[in-house]
Amino acid sequence: MSGKILEKEELDFRESIEFFPDSTFIKQRVYQDSTSTASGKYGSFISDGNDYLKLKYSKDSYLIQTCGNSMVEYLRILSESEIYNGGYLPCDGPGYYYTRTRK
């Protein structure tokens, strides 16, 4: 692992997760010439004093950021406006920070 931190402007895609009041979500990754989406249900829990979101996908997708064949992804809530996914870290992959945007 390089430990290099890339800014969102350096990535070749834009990714977002939209959470809805009925406990569903949609993750979208937009490339210059295509868009991929995945969806499912989410819930929250506390572990070791940290708040998390558990995303359970309805279909398998390359957008699921976890090692192995799991259809579950965990996001740590860092603040009211920031969450973190380190699901790829155990398999030497990247971590992703998401910041809240208002519509």
Rank of each mutant, 00 (worst) to 15 (best):
K8T: 14
P21D: 11
G3S: 15
D60Y: 08
R102Q: 11
Y96G: 01
G40N: 00
K41H: 10
L53M: 04
L89W: 06
S34L: 09
R29W: 03
I77L: 00
E10Q: 14
Q65R: 05
G87Y: 03
D60L: 08
T35L: 11
E9M: 03
L6E: 12
Q32L: 11
T24N: 10
L89C: 04
M1H: 09
A38Q: 02
Y74Q: 08
E15M: 14
K56Q: 01
S39P: 09
Y84G: 01
R76I: 06
S47D: 11
I64G: 00
S79T: 04
L75S: 01
R100S: 06
S79N: 06
E10M: 11
K8Q: 12
N85G: 09
K56C: 06
I64L: 06
E15C: 12
L11E: 07
I46W: 11
D48R: 12
Y57E: 10
F25H: 02
I17Y: 04
T37H: 02
G87C: 01
T37P: 02
A38S: 13
S61R: 04
D51V: 13
K56P: 00
S44E: 12
S79R: 00
I5R: 05
C91A: 12
L78G: 02
Y62E: 10
I64H: 03
K54I: 10
I77F: 03
E10C: 02
C67R: 02
Y52C: 11
I46C: 06
P21H: 10
E82R: 12
S16C: 01
D48W: 11
G86C: 08
K59E: 14
K4E: 14
Y31A: 04
L89D: 03
G68K: 07
M1T: 05
G40P: 00
K56T: 09
R102F: 15
S2N: 13
N69W: 05
R29M: 09
Y74T: 13
K103H: 13
E9A: 14
F20T: 13
S39H: 14
F20Y: 15
L63I: 00
Y84D: 02
G40R: 05
S23P: 03
Q32E: 12
D92A: 14
S70C: 01
T24H: 10
I77Y: 05
G86Q: 07
S79G: 00
Q28R: 12
E73Q: 04
G93P: 09
G3N: 13
E80L: 15
S16D: 01
Y52T: 11
G95N: 00
S39C: 08
G40W: 07
E7P: 04
Y84H: 02
E73P: 04
L6Q: 07
D33M: 04
G87N: 07
E9C: 03
I17K: 01
G95V: 08
Y98P: 09
E10G: 01
D48S: 15
R76K: 07
Y96A: 01
R29Q: 10
M1R: 05
F25K: 06
T24C: 06
C91G: 01
Y96M: 04
P94Q: 08
E82D: 02
Q28C: 06
S2A: 14
S61A: 09
K56D: 01
S81T: 10
S23T: 07
